[in-house]
Each structure stands twice: as structure tokens, then as C-alpha cells.
Amino acid sequence: MTGTADGRSAEETAPFDSRIAPEDGPSDEPALPGPDRVVEGEREMASGTDLAADVAALQTQFDVVRYLRRLAEDHGFRHFIICLIPPIEVAKLSETSIVSNLPKEMLASFDESGLLQHSAGFRRLRSTTTPFCLSQQEWTRETTRAAEAAQHMAVSARHQVEQVAYFPVHNADGTRAAMILMGEQRAIPMAEMMELQMVAIYLYNRLTEIGAFWRESDVALSEREIQCLNWTAAGKTSAEIAGILGLSEHTVNHYLNHVTKKLNAVNRTQAVVKALRRGLIS
């Protein structure tokens, strides 16, 4: 339930390249594997082996977007987003989006209302690893900014969003994210929820492998920050790094704390992992 106050599109404000779904239209590209199988007009859930093979065949974030578009349509949803679950101080969903087809009006409404910190869905995502659904009424009732929530719901209703399904995931370094699907109100069977949860896990891990969101242009480290991270990766303590670089231990801690915040990491170890994956250190 979520472009911007200055009128820019979601593509222009997404923090990573190609996070927003490309427009539909004719394409000469080969067909991608589908998220399910169709038997006599009815959707049949793919086996775990089929799902793993289908997702592994996705080569770019655009492939993931097309896959998600089909997945959403096949399951009766209109909109989707895969995003990081940010710490409470992050204020905008657009800053955490990885891939999405959310209408820019919805995303702008969500961000301008400051709902990321108050959303019932994101509050639950921070405390559970189990998929769940919220109806429009439940989301509005449980979101702590009632007036802003009601205004955003009016925007969402114009885009036929009556219900949101949340699927929390994480990768090997502990970074948490979620696949969120939005559409009309309906009862979703538990088996379907669990199937979609498995899809979310495979897709998020595939995005990590593709590197779709590890190439952030807005993260730049200073020479000292890179040096401190490299020595931390080598197993050195702050005191040891201070001796090597001719700095005070306090200054080394300052550099490491600063770079940890830049990388949205929970500690130095995670900062090193993220920096390595993004090619910021070697």
C-alpha cells in the first residue's frame, strides 16, 4: 500500500537501476519460465524442483520483474514490490525498493505521509518470519497514524487495492526483506500462502545472486573508511587498526560506526559483508 512530491516517476527515484517494472508491450525476448503450471485451464502449483529451476533461469532484474508480473496475475494480485525491511529511522519506502510495479501515486502517497515507520504491515514484518495478510480495514485500524492511513487507503482504493499479502524473507548475511502483493479482497488458502512464501525466498535469493541491489550509486566510502573496513575484514580490532593507520582508537571507531550506518548494517561484521558484496572493498 504505497512517485514523489516533485512529480518524478518511481523509476527516477528508485535507489538502484531497474527496480521498477518495465512497461508492458510486445517484446522479441524469449519467453521466461512461468511461476506455475497450467493443466486444463486451472493453475497447478509448481513443485519445489520446478520453482528452483524457473527462478535460477532468471538472469536480470528485468527477468524477475516479468516473472513477478505473471505471478501476481496468476494469483489474482494487481501490484507487487520486493523491498528491504528497513530500520525504524528510515522514512521512505522508495529508498528500500528493489523491484516493483507500484503506481507512482501510491508510492508517493505512502512516502509523503511518513507511513513506513507507522504501517501495520511493516511493524509486523519487523517481528515475524511468517507470511500474513491484512485487509484494507485491518491495515487502517492497526496503523498508528489514523488520518494519514485513511488518506493513503483512499489512494490505494483507486488502484483496486483491498488487501495486502506480506512474505518476509532474509538472506545469508541476515539482511531482511519482503515480497508484498496487493489486490482485491479474497480468502487466500494456507497452501497458496506457503507456495508464495517459497517463491519469495527463491526470488529474493536470486536477486541477491544477480546483484540487482548491491550496486548502489549513492553509497560512497572515504579512503579512511575503506582502510578501516579492510582491516576489520582482516580480523583486526579497533586498537590494532589505530596502530596500523596512526590514528586514535576513538577515530577508528568513528569511521567504522559511520560506514556501518552508510551501509544500513546492524554491526561491523555485516558492514564488511555488504561492502564486499558491493565491491566497495576487496
Rank of each mutant, 00 (worst) to 15 (best):
E23R: 15
R19M: 11
R70L: 08
E73M: 06
T60A: 01
D24E: 11
D36N: 14
L84N: 09
R69K: 12
I88T: 09
I20Y: 07
E29V: 06
D24S: 14
F62I: 14
I82Q: 04
A91M: 08
P35D: 02
A53P: 00
Y67T: 03
P22W: 07
Y67D: 02
V55E: 03
A57H: 04
I20N: 06
A46W: 01
L51Y: 04
P22I: 07
L58P: 04
E23A: 15
P86N: 07
A57E: 05
L32I: 15
D36S: 15
E40I: 05
D24W: 07
H75G: 00
H75R: 06
A31L: 14
E44I: 11
H79F: 14
P87V: 11
D28Y: 10
D17C: 06
H75F: 15
D24M: 09
F80N: 02
A52D: 09
E89R: 11
A57F: 02
T60Y: 01
A14R: 02
L84W: 06
A53L: 10
D50Y: 15
E73R: 15
V65K: 10
M45T: 08
D28M: 09
I82S: 02
V55T: 08
T60M: 01
R37H: 12
Y67M: 02
D50L: 11
G48T: 09
I20S: 08
V65D: 13
A52E: 13
I85A: 07
